[in-house]
Design a protein around this nucleic acid. Sequence first.
DNA 1: CATGACGCTTGAAACATTTCAATCCCACCC
DNA 2: GGGTGGGATTGAAATGTTTCAAGCGTCATG
Lengths: 346, 346
Amino acid sequence: MTQQPRNGRAPSVKDVAAAAGVSLGTVSNVLNRPAVVSSTTRERVERAMADLGFVRNESARQLRAGTSRALAYVMLDGGNPFFHDVAEGIETAAEDADLSLFVCNSSGRSEREAKHLDRLLQQRVQGILITPVDPDAAHLADIAQRGVPFVMVDRFSRAGGHCSVAVDDVLGGRIAVEHLIDRGHRRVAFVGGPESIGQVRERLQGARAVWAEFGMPEEDLIHLPTEALTVNEGRSAGERLAGLPSRRRPTAAFCANDLLALGLLQHAVTAGLRVPDDLAIVGFDDIDFAAAAAVPLTSVRQPRQELGRTAARLVLDEATNPAHVHEQATFVPALVARASTGTVRR
Amino acid sequence: MTQQPRNGRAPSVKDVAAAAGVSLGTVSNVLNRPAVVSSTTRERVERAMADLGFVRNESARQLRAGTSRALAYVMLDGGNPFFHDVAEGIETAAEDADLSLFVCNSSGRSEREAKHLDRLLQQRVQGILITPVDPDAAHLADIAQRGVPFVMVDRFSRAGGHCSVAVDDVLGGRIAVEHLIDRGHRRVAFVGGPESIGQVRERLQGARAVWAEFGMPEEDLIHLPTEALTVNEGRSAGERLAGLPSRRRPTAAFCANDLLALGLLQHAVTAGLRVPDDLAIVGFDDIDFAAAAAVPLTSVRQPRQELGRTAARLVLDEATNPAHVHEQATFVPALVARASTGTVRR
DNA sequence: CATGACGCTTGAAACATTTCAATCCCACCC
DNA sequence: GGGTGGGATTGAAATGTTTCAAGCGTCATG
């Protein structure tokens, strides 16, 4: 690339046209419909582009086209690898469609989420994927009403009016607790909160349902509430658990996500408990760090990448297919049994 | 917001102007210089904007302005929380400057990196922050030559010609190994590779330097090479370590990053080794999961968020200050001692 | 009553691209 | 030699915003 000395602004199609001695319409044809241009002209234009170091101006394209060539994913918690894997699935699909992906992070803060959405609206992104702080927030309804393609990831809203993608959390709760019952546990803790989070509610609901079905006394499924789904909260739940009188103390814990489970595991090991013999632990999400823990964690796997890919597929369908109908894609979670629930309790 | 029925395209300043009975120049003034507009007109225009659900078209602004209101960070490995924290630091700074941030992930693949850079160039981002696959790659020099503000994060290139931000990795290596010597270890493994990665080379170099300074025999600092800086590779290094004849077997390991350390820790625990009594472990980066491990990991902390903030500051300076001079910001790493090196060995 | 000043508003130009109808030119046929 | 068809190229229009010089009207001052 024989680059011209830069004299301020970047070269435009007009400059390329002048350098190649053709009209700017022809340059545009080379870019967008190379077949209609004669090969000699095409080569001349291509050489000029290389010489000048021409790069298409995306904003001008966008302005003309009326929409950008980008999708966006607003994730709930950048510190949780789960969302990262979802984002990776989305990115794969975006790349296949030759679209860019904006990855934003609301960090669980509603006002940051709103700010991101506002920016994305200004960018005229083709579609928005979001794991929202609150699925029923007004600014979400606003987006949908504007007609911007919009998919909710890993959450549902009562309202509807858009696609969503998630796993069956009630089933996930059932699977986890059934596994523990199966392993011989008769007193189990559910660690997780706040209940304002749909996931927490549903996983607990599934846990209670299967507990009842097996005819276990209600009071032997103990709910240890947390203020967030973090490692720290998992640790503190561990302390509360250790503080229970021994005949009330559970022999196993089902945590609403893997971060909690890792925190709980850490507390248990520090306190000298053997996992799984003194305390068995099941997490949720099956993030890579669950398998990497000192005692590999049993976890309820969500198909993280596929969640992302499907969400991207749906938003693209909404963006391009006039006959699009909203869809609620539900995936089936699966138990991945590892050492943290490894032994059968007599 | 009393929204009009949508009839196709989004409302523009022109529509707002018509609705408010003013010229489009006035609408623009309300948006950009509200002080020069009389309050009655301003209110009328604001009402019209709200009624119509007007949203500024960012691509038109960009086209006019010649540059976008965005920065970009191309990270090396989205699966490593370290880069996530760096990104968070960048985002903070971007938000303060009222800029958007594109977060891209090259996943360690050079061609993906090149593709991302190409797209970002088309977007006319104000500046690019990158942790590159190869600091000396041609496409990086190309960016710098184009005059796009550009900062290298956590890497250096021989070439120079741009800002960079990193910690002193040689010093980091020294600190880690000195700590182990201090704890009484006389046979230590360095786990990490490939040596094509600058970080690995320098951390090893620091380790060797301090080892020699303490007068320890060279052959007692054993290099266990890995193919990547991942949990899996850490585990497999653990196997090789366990396979060493016992009088050659190290009592401590310094891992080139925390992912390796977590993998090694897992292997050790699974194999029934006590950490730190049978094997002490030091990691590098101090990601959150290091503190959250079953045996909390001693690690060499990098100021991750500050790395990001500083990088963003530099790129913004380059973008806005004509007197900008390139700067190589170096941070000092610090040891965070935790249980994984908790005891003194006699 | 004329002049100037001041506050507010206006309208045109510019940004880089894409599209499309119009034009050009050439070869070929009658 | 005139006409026709068609491939290649052209130039103008349109996209939505910002800026800025110019215009307008009102008010105060001389």
